[in-house]
Design a protein around this nucleic acid. Structure first.
Ligand SMILES: [Mn+2]
Ligand SMILES: [Mn+2]
Ligand SMILES: [Zn+2]
Ligand SMILES: [Zn+2]
Lengths: 132, 132
DNA sequence: AAGTAGTTTAGAATGATTTTAAAGTAAATA
DNA sequence: TATTTACTTTAAAATCATTCTAAACTACTT
């Protein structure tokens, strides 16, 4: 599917900037990146985009489910092009994330959900340390 | 154990400010709080402390293992007085955390650790949504 | 008591993200 | 197609949590 269609299907206006970002991000690869990482890739691809627009686009993409955001990697916002329910290995030193397929992790016990709430998704983080 | 001992045992100098904080935090209750939350509690207890000092103390307490830090709750730093290995319920709307005992969660499968790394701890987050 | 290293503080600096408001563009309407 | 409307982009300023700076202070050592 073309970037134009993906953006239209998501209910967003296909601006030049959103198309540039969609071309970079929505290529089937699973990536974890910051706003600045993306701005650098945009530059490398021969385009220019203000950092404000990068943030605006990422917010819109997130809101309509084209990407996700990961909260535990770095102190800066990290986005994730893998929109499936999945888990992560996390190298706490560097913030590097590696995807874990949902079906690779099986929880035997899940504790009782507190009163007034419902389970809205389980996320497993396996923290990693370099071995030597 | 008295706050003075706890601080000494942790290898820190028992300053007036660290004692005030230890009195508030290390009372056996399990709390999740921000630097500003703590500064408010310090004020309520009739003491004054600059926000810089609150941050300095929390950093020292964290470094010597008297408290932990949770990375996925809010955008601001959240600290945790429960230093045992444990998991969390997370209300994503509010950032509220509820502790889950380590033994309440059993993982049946853990995927193979990537090459060059070792497992440095598994953390489970059960996201919650208000039910109605 | 004197010296040294560590700590507190107000205020400045930092840096990621958001806001502002003006100019530009996509979609809707005539 | 021309006009209108709503949304988007942008540079620059603002925000805000956190860290840094450097001077005054304090705990510990000798
Ligand atoms: Mn860069
Ligand atoms: Mn407050
Ligand atoms: Zn991922
Ligand atoms: Zn906790």
């Amino acid at each position: 599917m073309k970037s134009l269609e993906k953006i239209r299907n998501a209910g967003l206006r296909p601006t030049k900037q959103r198309l540039v970002i969609a071309d970079i991000l929505l290529d089937g690869q699973n990536r974890h990146f910051t706003a600045e990482d993306l701005q650098d890739e945009i530059s490398s691809s021969g385009n220019y985009m203000s950092i404000g627009t990068v943030y605006n686009c990422l917010k819109k993409f997130r809101e309509c489910g084209l990407i996700k955001q990961v909260k535990y990697s770095k102190d800066t916002a990290v986005f994730d092009t893998n929109t499936n329910h999945h888990h992560h290995f996390l190298d706490e030193e560097t913030g590097q994330l590696i995807d874990i397929d949902n079906n690779k992790v099986i929880l035997k016990n899940i504790p009782e959900i507190p009163n007034g709430f419902i389970n809205n998704g389980v996320e497993v983080i396996i923290k990693l340390k370099r071995n030597n």
